[in-house]
Amino acid sequence: MPDPILQLTDVKTHFPIHEGFLVKRQTGTVKAVDGVNLTLARGEVLGLVGESGCGKSTLARTILQLVPTTGGTIVLEGKNLTAGSSAEILDARRNLQMVFQDPYASLNPRMTVYAMLAEPLLVHKVCPSAEVPARVAELMTLVGLAPRFMQKYPHEFSGGQRQRIAIARALALQPRVIIADEPVSALDVSIQAQILNLLASLVKKMGLSLIFIAHDLSVVKHISDRIAVMYLGKIVELGSAVEVIERPRHPYTRALISAIPTPNPDVERARQRIVLAGDPPSPVNPPSGCTFHPRCAYAQEKCKTSVPPLVKIDDGREVACVRIGEI
């Protein structure tokens, strides 16, 4: 890819598990992210989807260096974010902002909306202090909140309204890359559409790049240029958004797509789903070989032993399945 803005190479994030009451011993590791290679082009929207617990949020937090990487490199505009905490790297990290999955936990309950949005503007001297109130009002309008709510506290807002505050906060520093972790899950369809339009227009206008994590695949398809499908800490399929949703190739992606509910009662009640056998596996003791094999309808002996690499198939798509040619 020519001149990517963000490049991940073999990124790993493992968490130790401790047990014991008085003396804590490490009894295992959660391989939440386990060898992810990914590039993000300038102005690109990359959708990231996958089963709950597969490591999407951990990957996002790793990119922002909110959790330390266990291995691999994360390069943003030529600077390796994983290489320490020099002033230069800290400054580069400012260009990455995140909208979190859980707006309840990420908003300070004791700060008014005004204080929350003014803080980053003041700390990073984005604009002269006399212009801060106007800039805050502008940010609020941008995300569809009436500026008259400026002096309210988070608890005075509904779930959806709070999520908009979180988005406004991420936009305050005019970052180059935004990682949005389920930014619209809590919003009603109409407001969700407004936020998606907003994100899409920000991407176009400001040349912003966006990693968009969501469970609603119709939303991901709508906004993304490409989609990456994650399973148990690894990327198993990567391709253009339309292709991945309309012609999923990896058996996991196929199951995922088949579970999308349709907003049409007669169709929805008559529909056939690919029901995945077994439970989502544990990242503590991941299955051998292809980690999807215990639930895969196409699994063979070879799937239990060899870890399938992500390889390019026809239409530029990348799939991690050794049987991809046969199924």
Partner: peptide, 20 residues
């Protein structure tokens, strides 16, 4: 009715989504 018109899967990809 407006709520239904806002459903993303019923609108063309990349278009500006209908909002109230």
């Amino acid at each position: 009715r407006a709520l239904q018109r806002s459903i993303p899967s019923l609108q063309p990809k990349g278009s500006e989504l209908y909002t109230i």
